[in-house]
Amino acid sequence: MRLFLATAFCLTLFALNSILCRAALVVWGMEPLQYTAIRGLSAAVMLALLCALHVVRGAPGKGSVWKQAWKESSWAGSLFLFLYMLCFSLAYLTMPSAAGTLILNISVQFGMVGWGLAQGVRLTRMQAAGLALAFAGLLALLSPGLTAPPLVGALLMVISGLSWGGYSICGRGASSASLATAGNFFRCAIAGVVTACAAMMLEGPAHPAAWACALAAGAVASAPGYVLWYVIVPRYSLTGSSVIQLSVPLITAVLAVLLLNEPITLRLALCSVPILGGICLALVSRQKA
C-alpha cells in the first residue's frame, strides 16, 4: 500500500507539471520564457536544498554530494533537459493539457526506440505492431479537423518529448539517477539565468499567481517528483515502470477537467486508446523478447 500511494503521488506530481504550466500561461497570462526560467531555477534550488539536507546522498568516500552530482551529470544531458522545458512551455501556449501529455509520452517512447534502432536493437513483430498502432493513433489525433490539437503546439511537444528521451539516454551510464538529476539541473541553471534575462527584456511582468504556479512546478512537481520516482522505480521492472507512466496522461486529463475546466474531446478519447494501448503492447512485448 505504501508503494502504491507513493507511486500514485509521484505520477500525480508529473501530471501537475502540465496543469501548472497551462494555468500559468493561459489562465494567468505568464509568457513562456519566464515560466521556463522560473521552473528550471526553482527546481535547481530545491535540489540543492535536498542535497544539503542529505535527502539526495552521495556515495561514501567519493567526495562531497555536490562534486558527485556534477560528475554524474553532463552538458549534453543538461542541454536536453533545458530544451525539454523550453519546448514544453512553448507548446502549452496552445496545447490542451491532456493532449499535450499524451503527445509528450508517445514522443519519449519513439525517441527511445529510435535510439535503440540506431544502436542495432531489432524490434519483434509485436513491438513493431504496437508502435505502428500508437503511431496510427497519433496521426489520427493530429489529422485536420475542428477538434485537432494545434499543429505547431503538437510539433513543439514532440520536440519536448524527444528531448526528454535524449536526456534519459544521457543518464543511462550514471550510477545514481538522483545525483545525475541534481547535477543536470545545476548545469541547466546557467541556461535558466540567460533565459530569465531574455524574459526581462522581451516579456512583460507576470501575475503573482503565475509565479506561484511556476515555482510549484519546479520546486514541488519537478525536483522532488523526479527524486521520489528514482527511489520508487527500482521496485518495479523496467517494463513495469514504463507501463505505469502511461497513466500520467489519464491523470492529467482528469485534473484538467477538474482544475482548468478543459473538455475531453471525443477525438482525444478515441485516439488515446490505440496510442496508449500500442505503447503498452510494445513495452510488454519487449519484456517477453
Rank of each mutant, 00 (worst) to 15 (best):
T7G: 10
F9G: 13
C10G: 05
C10L: 07
L11I: 10
L11F: 08
L11S: 03
L11Y: 13
L13R: 03
L13K: 04
F14Q: 00
A15K: 04
A15Y: 11
A15L: 03
L16P: 12
N17S: 13
S18V: 10
S18R: 06
S18Q: 08
L20P: 14
L20F: 15
C21M: 05
C21W: 01
C21R: 07
C21H: 01
C21T: 15
C21F: 05
A23I: 11
A24I: 13
L25C: 03
L25R: 03
V26H: 11
V26S: 14
V27Q: 12
W28E: 03
W28T: 02
W28A: 04
G29H: 04
G29S: 01
G29F: 04
G29V: 06
M30E: 04
E31R: 15
E31S: 14
E31D: 11
P32D: 00
P32E: 00
L33F: 08
L33R: 06
L33D: 03
Q34N: 15
Y35K: 03
Y35M: 11
Y35R: 00
Y35D: 00
A37R: 04
A37D: 03
A37Y: 02
I38Q: 00
G40Y: 03
G40T: 15
S42Q: 01
A43R: 02
A43F: 05
A44I: 06
A44K: 05
V45K: 00
V45H: 05
V45N: 01
M46W: 08
L47F: 11
A48E: 06
A48T: 15
L49K: 04
L50F: 10
C51D: 01
A52T: 12
A52P: 14
A52D: 03
A52Q: 13
L53I: 14
L53H: 13
H54N: 12
H54K: 15
V55I: 14
V55K: 04
V55W: 14
V56P: 02
V56M: 01
G58A: 05
G58D: 01
G58I: 11
A59Y: 13
A59K: 13
P60D: 00
G61E: 00
K62N: 14
S64Q: 12
S64M: 14
V65P: 11
V65G: 10
K67G: 09
A69Y: 12
W70I: 15
K71Y: 12
E72Y: 11
E72K: 12
E72I: 08
E72W: 09
S73P: 08
S73E: 02
S73H: 11
